[in-house]
Every structure is written in C-alpha cells, then in structure tokens.
Design a protein around this nucleic acid. Structure first.
Length: 210
DNA sequence: GACCAGGCACATC
DNA sequence: GATGTGCATGGT
C-alpha cells in the first residue's frame, strides 16, 4: 500500500472535503496566493474584500493603481508594502506576457510557466505552485510549512530538505491528478491548523501510527 | 503580552 | 550551502 495514499485516506476520513481554493475566480485565487504568504487567511479575506469594495480586483485596475493606494487597500493582510510590490510584479508579468488573461497563461507549458513564475520578484515555489494548481488547475503538488512539519514528525522525510525534495516525494508516488493534489494540500493545512503546528497537539492526530 | 499565521528576499559567513 | 533577519496585521 502506497504510504502517501494511506495518509491521504486518513486525512480525508478525518476531515472530509475541504472545497479549496476559497475564491470566486482564477484571478482572485492568484491574488490570494500572494496575499496569504506567511499570513492568516482571515486577514487575506479582509484585504480581498477591500479590493472588491473598490472594484479593484482586476488585472487592469491593479496594474494602473498607485502603489501606495494598493498598499492601503491590502493593509489587513500584513506586509502590505512588500505585498503591494509583489502583486504589481505578478500582474505586470500577466499583462505583458499573457494579455492579462489567466486563460492564456493556462495554455503555457506547465514546467516553463513554473520557471517563469519563479523569476518574478516575490513569487517563490509555494506561491507559484498554488497559482498553477488552484488558479490554473494544473497538477503540481503544493508544499507548505504544515506539510513539512507533518511529514518530518512522522519521519517520512527530514524537515530540512528542500522544497523540491518534498515535492518530488509526492510527484514520484502519486498520480498527477488535479483533484487529488487540490484536496491533499488543503487537508495538510487543515491538519496543521488542528494538530501539527509549531507546538503540536498530537493527541487524537489522524496520522498517529502511520 | 507573547505567540502564531497557507513565504520570500537579502545579507553574511 | 546554511543560518539569520526584516516585513506587519489581527486572532488566540
């Protein structure tokens, strides 16, 4: 039995479907992926609400809006000066290379696109993969801090391995399935919020004894 | 008041 | 390649 599928089954049985990503459009998902960097999702929702309220949640508006104005709108998400620049950088890329269209971006070869996203200032591996998986619905596995904690605590792989090492671990033993990767990552986040935090609450953890 | 949250870039050794 | 630091709001 594939151990990673065993973990998936346990998480799914414990928590059920997670209905990710929370967002109405691919563009909103991509914006959320940048805003949620090291930040509680509730704060991101407030920032996105501000953008919607001002009718600013579109590539064209964010592209031309003043940096200081954008920063003040996304203030609740934290790191707002940095994230305003990161949003601008991503959207310049989207406008210049794909006519502001995520549908166009989706047509790009996945590996090429991933490398191009990683060259954008402020887009690292987790953000790039979140955009590819959740906004563009292409099968790459998203690794985050919760995933690393859970797998290292249960001695599957050392915490200090690289992002790519963790990702390969999943890619090499699971089918490249968008739905599976979507649910699996979301379940790791759920697990992390419930049990596998910096200060773990291991009692009752569904991964006990895997 | 301390600690944490769905990272990333940059400096320094 | 490894380690340390700045970025910042809001909930527990």
């Amino acid at each position: 039995m594939n151990r990673l599928l065993e973990i998936y089954r346990r998480l799914y049985d414990a928590f059920g479907p997670q209905h990710w990503w929370p967002g109405e459009t691919p563009f909103e998902i991509a914006v959320g992926a940048i805003l949620t960097q090291n930040t509680n999702w509730g704060n991101v929702e407030k920032a996105i609400m501000n953008l919607k309220k001002e009718n600013a949640l579109s590539p064209e508006i964010i592209h031309k809006i003043k940096l200081s104005r954008l920063a003040s709108l996304i203030r609740p998400a934290g790191y707002f000066n940095i994230k305003a620049k990161r949003l601008k950088a991503f959207i310049s890329f989207l406008m210049n290379e794909y006519e502001g269209s995520l549908k166009r971006m989706k047509e790009e070869d996945t590996q090429i696109l991933r490398l191009r996203l990683l060259r954008i200032h402020g887009i690292g591996p987790e953000t790039a993969d979140s955009i590819i998986l959740y906004a563009l619905e292409k099968p790459v596995f998203v690794v985050d801090a919760y995933t690393k904690r859970a797998l290292s605590r249960h001695e599957f792989i050392e915490f200090n391995r690289t992002y790519e090492d963790f990702q390969k671990f999943f890619h090499s033993s699971l089918n490249r399935d968008v739905k599976l990767f979507n649910e699996y990552h979301a379940l790791f986040v759920k697990l992390g919020k419930t049990y596998c935090r910096k200060k773990p609450i291991c009692n009752g953890c569904p991964l006990e004894g895997v």
